[in-house]
Each structure stands twice: as C-alpha cells, then as structure tokens.
Computed example of a mutant assay.
Amino acid sequence: MSTPRVTIAQVAAEAGVSAMTVSNVVNERPGASESTRQRVLEVARRLGYTPPGARNGKRGRTGLIGVLTLDLTGQYSLEIVRGIAEEIADDERELFLNAALDAARERERISLFAGGLVDGLLLIAPVLAPETEQAIHAGGLPVVVIDPRRLDLDLPRVTVDNYDGVRAGTHHLIELGHRRIAYIRGEDDHESTDARHRGYTDALRLAGIQPDPALVASSNFNHQGGVHAATRLLTTQRPTAIVAGADPIALGALDAARALGLSVPDDLSVVGFDDLPQAAHSAPPLTTVRQPLHEMGRAGTRALMSLIARQPLATDDIRLATKLVLRATTAPPSGPRDG
C-alpha cells in the first residue's frame, strides 16, 4: 500500500502559515520573511512534502489549480468544485479555492492568481468586467470559465443548454394540461437568464399559447427572492404552474404556496432548474431541470489541464446537455383544462 502523499494544507497547518505562503516558499517566490521561509522548508522536509509540479514532471511550476467563485457557500458552486476535485484526484495537483464578493475583489484575486501563485485558473460564474478580461489576456495565465455570465468572452468556457432545459420543463407542464404557466426569472446580469426565459416563451408559442407578461416575475437566484416573486404571482395572477429559473427560486415558490394554503402539486405545479442536492429532499421532492454541475467542473478542469500543457482544445465552447428530472411537484391542473 502506498503512503498517502503530504499536502500543501498539511505543511501550512504544521508551520502555522497559509497555503499561499507555503506555495511561495517552496516555489522560491518572494513574499515571506526569512524566518518564515526557513520554518516552512524545515516542516516540508520533515513531512516529506514535494511540490506537485516537481512530483509529476508535468508542465507548470506550482502544481496548484486556482478556483475562484463569487460564493463558496451555496450548493451550486460546491457541486462544481466537487467535480473539479474529482478530476484532479489522480493528477497529484491541489486546489487553491477563493471567493470574490464583487467585481473589484474578483479582479484583485485574479491578479493575485496570475502573479505565479497557480498554474491555471477556473472561474465559476464570474462577473469578469471587460478590463478584468483584458488583464487575463495580458497576463497569459491559462483560464477556463465555467457557466459564464456573458457569452461574448474571448476565453474557453463550459456552458449548458439553458434554453432547451427550460423549454423541456415548460413543455412538460403543457402536456399535463396547464395553460396559465408563470415564469420567475433569475438575475438579469446572467445571459443564461435570457436563454431560459426564451425557452419558456418558445414552448408556450409552439403549443399555441400566447405568453402573458403578467405571468412573468423577476427574482434573484436565491430562496427569499423566490418566496417574494411567487407570492406576488399567486396573490395577483393565480397561475396553475410556475417554472423557476433556478432551484432556490423554485424552493422559495414551494414555501410561498404553503404559506398561502396551497397544495403542491394539487393546487400548483412547480418546475425548477439546477437539480441541486436539496431538490430531491424538498417537500414534496422537486421536479427540475438537471444541469450537470459535476461534469461542468470536470470538463472545465480537463480543458484547463490541456491549456497548462499547451495542448490545443477541440473547442473553446463546451456545451453540455440538460435533462428534465420528474419528481412530485408537477401534476395535471385540478380544475378543467384552460383553453
């Protein structure tokens, strides 16, 4: 049985410093005092730590892969990160995770990563202001974007078929007999929001149903936004079904229906988008569109590894399929079919 390899996190904990400091020291970059440098090197020798880049002989100096997202607390980002971690598990590389709370801090952290801290960087749903994208190109750091907010980026990216996913979810409700189908949009600064909205409206039109702007509400991508938007719709428009642009919105709609004394799916059907882990455990379990978050992480990591190794990519635009997952929040409308 092989001895488990020592990780940079273990060296950092033993030496009482950050993983970034260990990376700087073992890769002979400035930033640490001489006493700190000596302490880190002594701990690394004692534990038998060797930088991954030296162990595997692969292109890249640090053996670290950077991952930057605006939020490391939500299931969406965590599921993608799990896929990234699975993809590098046999590659003797390590992840350096960080979160940026806004566009300014995102640019600061990208500049930090680009300063030699990591061999490549994965960005999850980044803001990426134009000047930040220009800085990435100027710095030359290999970067892959997972679920970009803008599709006009001149960077390799991994996306899903947002349009077809919501179209399929809406079509499912139409097949059940629903005609008053509401839609709750996500945040407007994501191009996926428009693509999902188009999937909803096109599914209605193909079924001969004229989209009603009064049945469309805006939200952010969180639970509370879903509660507020669904409450407005249910108290003013009374749709028989709601399609939500994200699972947290859909879960908020379930709570809004419950607070109003409505039964799901008897009085209201709900379809989400994501298939986050909590979707299968909601009450009742949520019918939703699965975007393959694990595979998005794995596909982005494979593309980044190719860039680090200076190998050409088959495509700069990796698009993965979505899948409708039927559970218990959808059923035929309780009254006579509309129209």
Rank of each mutant, 00 (worst) to 15 (best):
A299V: 15
T3G: 08
P142A: 09
V158T: 02
D212I: 06
V25S: 00
L326R: 08
E28A: 14
P333W: 03
L262I: 05
A13S: 13
L276R: 06
D189S: 11
P142T: 04
A321S: 15
I65Q: 02
L47S: 03
G252Q: 06
E106M: 04
G186Y: 02
N220K: 00
L122R: 03
A32L: 02
D266F: 03
P148L: 08
R109I: 15
R205D: 07
H228N: 15
L101G: 15
A259I: 10
G272Y: 05
A9N: 11
E131H: 07
L313M: 01
T330F: 03
G116N: 11
H281W: 13
L233A: 02
D194I: 11
A89P: 06
A12Y: 01
P211S: 05
A256K: 04
T3P: 05
A230M: 06
L70K: 11
A299S: 12
Q38I: 10
A246F: 01
K58V: 06
E28H: 15
P284K: 08
A250H: 05
D90H: 14
Y183I: 01
Q311S: 07
R46L: 10
G252T: 08
M20C: 06
I88C: 04
L123F: 07
V216L: 01
E133I: 04
T301K: 07
V289D: 09
L78P: 00
S306N: 06
M296D: 03
T73Y: 03
P52A: 01
Q291T: 07
H137K: 12
T3R: 15
I174V: 14
I181R: 01
R232F: 02
F221R: 08
A195V: 12
A114D: 12
L97T: 02
G208M: 10
G208L: 08
L122A: 09
R205Q: 13
A309E: 12
Q210N: 11
F273P: 05
Q134L: 07
V118Q: 00
A104N: 13
G335F: 04
R232E: 14
R150W: 00
A135V: 05
L112W: 14
R180Y: 00
D266M: 11
G169D: 01
G225K: 07
L101F: 14
N56R: 10
R327S: 06
S111C: 14
G208C: 09
T159D: 13
G199A: 08
R150F: 03
D91H: 13
R149K: 12
R310M: 06
R327C: 11
R5F: 04
N162R: 07
G245D: 09
L293D: 06
G177I: 05
G339Q: 11
G139F: 12
T329A: 07
D152W: 02
A241N: 03
